[in-house]
Amino acid sequence: MKKYLWFIPFVLVPLPFLGYPFLLSIFVLIGIYTIAAIGMDVLTTWAGQISIGNAAFFAVGAYTSAILVVNFHVPFLIAFLASGLFAMIIGIVVGLPALRVSGFYLAVVTMAFGIAVQQIIGVFQITGGYNGIRNIPVPSFWIFKASPVYQYYIVLFIVFLIFIVLSRISFSKSGLALFAMRDSEIAARAFGVNSLKYKLAAFAASAALTGLAGSLYASAIGFISPSQFDLTLSLDLLAMVIVGGTGSVMGVMIGAAFFVGLPFLLSGYNISITIIQGVALIVILLFLPKGLLQIFKITDLFKKKVI
């Protein structure tokens, strides 16, 4: 039970902010990017693969959900699940050929995929072309009216679910096979691990998680257009994992808070966010190679749980 204890403060977070819904919407965004960054973490830290095209899965999720909700009036829960599923299918379709290469080559292939998806979305009528889709409703359910508090708990609940599922997988046979493959693919294959299968599974899981995050993003922001899902987003997702701390939900969450929360804190002070973010990135990589999580000195406590 102790391993779930760290969630309690997050459950209590909204209480002092009930009068400040905009602050809650920042926390909602941090949660959404956490989910997408977990997707990246699964691929990089668990499977040892790299992707700088995950913005494409984010976009696929966002558009699937937005089109289903806005054009076809599908309930949000179904649209949400569909966006994860559709992103996963695309992940598998792309992963099959892409995972034959690795390292730099995989990075370039995924990057090309990311750019292609952004362009393709811009061409179709149903996606609203380059103008995007506006007025995407915030989901309401039963007695819960559309409000940032409600959104916050939805996102928190999903992060919690993902945490539980991932910590279970990490101790399972599949988890061990993944880690073995990451550490030495040849050794893993010698022990009978089907490396393509596990790589593909990691790629599909990564795509699905990122797609789910995209669906939540679309309803939280209410407006999506192709320009939001560019290469920068893919790189940000990768950077969140590295800045926060690889291999743990907490680390990824800190990384997401750094990338989402910092611009928010600094945006009113007329100082260049990009410069501060850039300098912070260099300092962190130099002095905290395991990410911001190192500062908290609690790496051991949380890291063990997931991997």
């Binding site: 905009f22 919407s25 965004l29 922001i221 939001q228 611009p263 600094l266």
Partner: peptide, 11 residues
Amino acid sequence: DDQLNPALTVT
């Protein structure tokens, strides 16, 4: 400063 990023603009 929203860096022309609509996610930041909204917040």
